[in-house]
């Protein structure tokens, strides 16, 4: 069961993760699966979707990039200030099988949902490879946490200040191409999970299709209700709601979502092409 009108929760703790990303922690426990999201109301400002993160010893948190009016307002808030919570909503990642080997490919705040998945996977002795990319060393999130739970890190930065210089997509591609030739244990992925900018997700999808690796992706669309009523987040041509049938979609179903990587709809419902799409 989800909470479908705002439950006011005080912010328990705020962690500055990087110059423009903060994590907000709450003392509120509820059942949710990695990949699901919640709606957070900033009273008097707006209400926006964010991935649910849980970790050992911490009920629930969200990791937020300050990019616009609502997220900047959230960044201004202090411990003890109250926000409204609704959720959990949407589909979730398939929890990997015991002792399997998986890759997580995260860009930006995409590490939020994937961090939670990594923790659940490690509890099942899953070998977790994390391909984490950011602009600079300072923008790489969750490193301590991921190291502590025993995730194998593959880091990349645009400026080379940490790890591979370039995109995590390239690092991932190299890894897959090299390791698909050898049968080294745990070097082939049973499953790939990706969350980040849609152009990144699209490239990861292409690599996975080419190498026949099953994968799941989280698709962000403009959300209003978050619980499947308003139709704002429906994708073409299937009409699935990214707040109910999504945001997590597997590689096979993704083939039916032809708008993926090409366009999305704005708050009015108007189609807006991505700059990289022809």
């Amino acid at each position: 069961m989800s909470i479908d009108h705002p439950l006011m929760l005080p912010i328990k703790n705020i962690v500055t993760e990087s110059p423009n990303i903060k994590t907000f922690m709450f003392d509120y426990n509820f059942y949710a699966e990695p990949g699901q999201f919640c709606m957070i109301w900033i009273p008097g400002v707006d209400e926006k979707p964010f991935g649910i993160v849980k970790r050992e010893g911490q009920d629930f948190m969200i990791t937020v990039a300050a990019i616009g009016v609502a997220t900047k307002a959230l960044h201004q808030m202090k411990t003890g200030d109250k926000v409204g919570f609704r959720g959990p909503y949407g589909s979730s990642f398939t929890i990997p099988a015991r002792r399997s080997s998986i890759a997580l490919v995260a860009g930006g705040y995409g590490i939020a949902s994937l961090g939670y998945l990594a923790e659940e996977a490690r509890k099942r002795d899953v070998h977790v490879h994390l391909f984490l990319g950011a602009r600079t060393k300072k923008d790489l999130l969750y490193l301590e946490w991921m190291k502590n739970i025993g995730v194998e890190l593959h880091l990349s930065t645009d400026d080379g200040s940490e790890g591979y210089k370039g995109f995590n997509v390239d690092l991932f591609k190299k890894y897959v191409e090299t390791n698909s030739k050898f049968k080294v244990q745990n070097s082939k992925f049973d499953m790939v999970y990706t969350v980040g900018p849609e152009i990144m997700e699209m490239k990861i999808a292409e690599i996975c299709y080419a190498h026949h690796i099953p994968f799941e992706v989280s698709i962000e669309r403009y959300m209003k209700c978050g619980f499947g009523l308003c139709g704002q987040c429906c994708v073409d041509p299937v009409g699935w709601r990214m707040c109910v049938e999504g945001p997590v979609i597997d590689g096979e179903k993704l083939k039916q979502i032809t708008e993926f990587g090409k366009y999305h709809r704005t708050a009015s419902g108007k189609v807006e092409k991505y700059p990289w799409a022809k």
Partner: peptide, 14 residues
């Protein structure tokens, strides 16, 4: 004409 509509919260359920 094109209308964005109101800001969220726009739909709540009880």
């Amino acid at each position: 004409t094109d209308r964005t509509g109101h800001k969220n919260p726009t739909v709540l359920a009880f």
